[in-house]
Nucleic acid binder design. Sequence first.
DNA 1: CACCAACGTTGGTGAAGCCAACGTTTCGAA
DNA 2: TTCGAAACGTTGGCTTCACCAACGTTGGTG
Lengths: 150, 150
Amino acid sequence: MDATAPQSPAGLRTTPSWLLNQVATHAGRLISAGFATHDLRGYHYRLLAALTESGPASQADLGRRCGIDRSDVVAAVNDLAGRGLVVRAPDPDDRRRNVISLTEAGADEAHRMADTVVRVQDDLLAPLTSAERDQLTRLLTRLLEHHGGH
Amino acid sequence: MDATAPQSPAGLRTTPSWLLNQVATHAGRLISAGFATHDLRGYHYRLLAALTESGPASQADLGRRCGIDRSDVVAAVNDLAGRGLVVRAPDPDDRRRNVISLTEAGADEAHRMADTVVRVQDDLLAPLTSAERDQLTRLLTRLLEHHGGH
DNA sequence: CACCAACGTTGGTGAAGCCAACGTTTCGAA
DNA sequence: TTCGAAACGTTGGCTTCACCAACGTTGGTG
């Protein structure tokens, strides 16, 4: 009946995977809110970012680079193509493939979304010093790399 | 700028919220796999943990403590009650409420799941020293607390 | 040539997180 | 004391993200 916000059970609150999940969930909310102003979602941004960095690619390649399933790439590319942010063209050298390329509008949108992402990072990491942010990034990177070659 | 990116785009790979998401996703897979051996999922564990720590509570209370929506608590409690891990009884003092209590079997299962969670943490944090694990926990805790009072 | 691998596509599954609405019950204020 | 607001449990639905199986088409190799 007291109930003045004793949040999660203590056993969870000190569990790294729980902390990870909570912080990632919060980050996801911030990111989602940011992307919503572009009327796009996470999958779309990942694809745009990959295209911006590495240029045109097949859908399967994009999926591998972004960690998105082939079937999910289809839907996301449909969305992006429907908005004219991306062009889907058959690959003349391999007729199994579609080559996905950024349009000018797509490149612009990618830039704007990248700006949004930067803003969100600052929001998310506000309580940490620059050194602490680096430390967090390094620790997470090491974890990711260790489990990366699964 | 270019950077030959075999894996994820470099712009993402250095973005904290992306790293957070990736590591949390991996942690989630490990946790899910662990819970699968108990034939239960995350929501169930959270509820059992809360009940273990703080004793019987109403569904709404449990939801608030675990960060689970009221409607989702209903389904999870249904599952737990169906397995005899938990008992749902009307609160005589407030007929709007159900009081949820752990059964003996439920307390046992909670312990076993907690053991599973500990094992998963070790797996997840394998590449980090004890000091680094503490550091990670501290950084994540600070982020969570900073964003906690939303 | 036959076979297998890769590709794009369709359709479906599941966990997790949310929100809206309803009937019941309780509580506080007019 | 009556009336309205609030809390509760419940149903049903929605969205994002992550997977998986299957199919027909196309490419490369034995």
